[in-house]
Every structure is written in structure tokens, then in C-alpha cells.
Amino acid sequence: MPAYQLTVNGRARTVDADADTPLLWVLRDTLGLTGTKFGCGQGVCGACTVHLDGKAVKSCQTSLKEATGHAVVTVEGLSKDGSHPVQKAWIAEDVAQCGYCQPGMIMSAAALLKRKAHPSDHDIDEAFADHVCRCGTYPRIRKAVKRAAGGVK
């Protein structure tokens, strides 16, 4: 098996696994980064969302090979201490219920705000179209995104 090189949360990592292994399982099982969640493995729940070169991608639909040579950021790497504006907004709006879907939501929110500093409601709808929160935290997600947008300017 060839070894694949990628950067995860700023750290160079070498991973020995099949090329088709989804990045999700590389993160969770090989690198022990369990903040990125498994919800469906079918690309329709968004729980596994991470950043690949700053863009939100579903890590269950991204193979190790595709991630090779790129910079991966997971929820653990978004900030050192929970101080990213999105994380702070999430706490301020008390968004989480069970919390399981939240790392994926937070990664999508951070990518959205990087792309668009002041997203409209429509932008927010679209950014979360592929995300499921069975606990129904949606109203607070919307508020938290807007709060984070106000905070970053």
C-alpha cells in the first residue's frame, strides 16, 4: 500500500491506507480525530464536513487520494481554543442540542463566511442544504451564522 501525504490541521501526516478510503475514516480511525462525524456515508447529511483548502467538503465523499497534497482542516483545527468567531457565535446562541451534527454545521458555516462575509438568508439556506440536524437546531444555526458575520466584518 502506498503512503499518502496530507496536511491535517496544519500538521503534515503520512497515511498508510487504500487510496479509496474516505477521508472521514482516515480522520476518525487512523488519525484519531473523532470530531468529524459519521452520519450517513451517503453524502446527504453533512455531519462529516471538513475544509479542503478552505472549502467545505464532505469527507465521506472525499477519498484519501483526492485529499492527498491538500490542506485538511477539521473542527479540532478550526481554532486552538474554541475562539473562532463561528464557535463563539455557536456558544452565544446556545445552538447545540445533542451536538452530533454540529461540527459539520460549524465547518460549513466557517467556509460560508470565508466565501461571503455577510450571507443572506438565501445563502444560508443553500450552504446548509446538505445538512441534517434531527434535533432541529436550525433557527439557532441561522442566528449564529448571522452573529458570526456581524462579528468578523
Partner: peptide, 16 residues
Amino acid sequence: RFDGPAIVTGKAIFGL
């Protein structure tokens, strides 16, 4: 929520 900070940093431990 007490667990909020652990959840938003990915530190909260679920069964999985």
C-alpha cells in the same frame, strides 16, 4: 448548555 464548549470544538465524546 453545559456541553456547548466541548461540542463546538469537537471534543465531546459520543458513543461512536
